[in-house]
Structure formats: structure tokens, C-alpha cells
Amino acid sequence: MKLEQRKDLLGLRDMSRKEIELILDTAIPMKDVISRDIKKVPALRGKAMVTVFYENSTRTRTSFELAGKYLSADTVNLAVSTSSVQKGESLRDTIKTMEVMGFDLMVIRHAMSGTPHYVAKNTKMRVINAGDGTNEHPTQALLDMYTIKEKKGTLENLKVAIVGDILHSRVARSNIYGLKKFGCEVRVVGPTTLMPPEIEKLGVKSYFSLEEAINGVDVINVLRVQRERQQSGLFPSLDEYARLYMVNTKMLSKAKDDVLILHPGPVNRGVEISSELADSSQALINEQVSNGVAVRMALLFLMMGGARDEINN
């Protein structure tokens, strides 16, 4: 298995189990690098990458940038809000500009599903999807899987519940695609208005009762409530949402004793997760963030570390 023969990382849907395993295994020595006094290795010296985020982000963008720097790549952030995009430059022209400047890799986030796929087809640069609309957020799912594997020792056949706004969640989709490749039983739970009717076609079981959904699970992945959805009338109030779907310490007795709580952040305390649980040792929110750097280092190394001239597209 060679990841360097893959030009882009657009989603976990079309990724093989072997490729995912290679990324997760490579992230282990990367995590060692981050824990040292000198957090830098020369592996990507002379490579350049640019992060282009058309949507806001704290952790994903910073995490990619830091991962690149720890590997000695030159990293640049295109600040979309102060760039020529505001003068009306088209996406295609922006990409071309980045390409001719000599970047080897572009990390892109966009509100429209499929944008990274379009970009990938129109550039020689390697492209990593950092979240596209409601489609996929593959690196978030990879770091979730890494975190689970690190704690449980395996991903094989675990029971995982994903809670919240399944309809709009790219994190949920990427997690489903990834976890299913390891034989996990994936359950999704949330309000009917936020549950896509055809979701079970992805091989998951949907629930409307939180209690039922978390019964006997190894992992609960709590999604962020996207407050902007409330305006669109998909759920009546944050209070009601919290009453029905907030994960708290009390209800964890339904799940396995050693259940892990994941949350991709940023956290709305008292809405999708209780403040007490978010700060407990079962919640791995901070571990997820630090593992995210290691997983992205692995990915950048595997995609940019090999010989360049063999890739044609």
C-alpha cells in the first residue's frame, strides 16, 4: 500500500481500510515527535503548503499549519476574508495563483459540498479536504478513529453512537464511512428533522431516543449543535434540544462502563453535552485536538514525502 500514489484526500468514502491503517500507524511516531523538547523533524524540508478556508475554523486550520511546520514544510494561510476573493476573484483563478506560486499541497474548506473535488481536478497540487459543506471532513474522522484506537487498542467491531444534527454533519458522514470499514456497529441519533431519511443506506441504524441509542456502546461521538440551524426552524429551541439530546454524566450508566466521549469542538456547554461531562476524564476533547496534529502530520508526510514526479493528474 502506498499512499503517495494517491494525489488527493477528499473523503474516507473512497479510501481503503489499508490506507486508513497506514495513516493511523504513521501518526504514532508523529505523536512522539510532538512530545519532545524539539518538536521538529526535517522530513518535508523544501515543501510548501497553503491552507485556504472559506469557512471559519480554529482547530482544523491551526492544526494543519502546525503539522506542516513540525515536519519543516513552509506553510502559508490564505486569509480568505482579506484576500482577492473579496474583489471577486473566482475559485479557479485563486487555485491557479496558488499553483504557480509553487505550493505542493492545498488544504481547503468550503461551505459547498464537492468544492475540494472540483479543486483537485483542476490543479497539479495535492488537495486535502478540510470539510466541504455537509459531505465529508475526513481528517476529523481520522483523528477520532486514532483517539478511539489509542484508548481501546482496536477499532474492530466497536459500538459507536453519533449524536446530534446528522443531516448537516460532515463529521458524522466521514466517521460512518471510516468506522464501517472496521466492522463497527454505528448508530446515529437525533431529532427527526435533523435525521436524513436515507441515512440507513450507509449501513447505520438510526434512533430518535438517546437512551436507546447509547445502550451498551463503547463510544459516544457528540456533534456540535450548529446554532445557525435553529433559525431555519429545524428544531424549536436549544432548551428543548438539550432536554432530549444533551449527553450528561447521569445517562452514561446505559453505555459501557469504559465508554469514551468524543466531541469535535467547539463545545456548546449545556446544549449537546453537559459542562460536567465535557470536563470529565471520559471526555477526550483535548486529546482529540492534540491527536489531530499527529494525524495530520502523518497525512502530510505520506502525501508529500514521496517522489513527486510520478504523480500525474
Binding site: 514525502g305 517522489a307 510520478e310
Partner: peptide, 13 residues
């Protein structure tokens, strides 16, 4: 690293 045709696996130190 940039000239190898196949990429070596990274292991732990």
C-alpha cells in the same frame, strides 16, 4: 525522501 520511488514506513523511536 524526495527521490525514493516507494515510501518507507515510519516507525517509533
Amino acid at each position: 525522501l524526495t527521490t525514493l520511488s516507494s515510501q518507507p514506513l515510519v516507525h517509533r523511536t
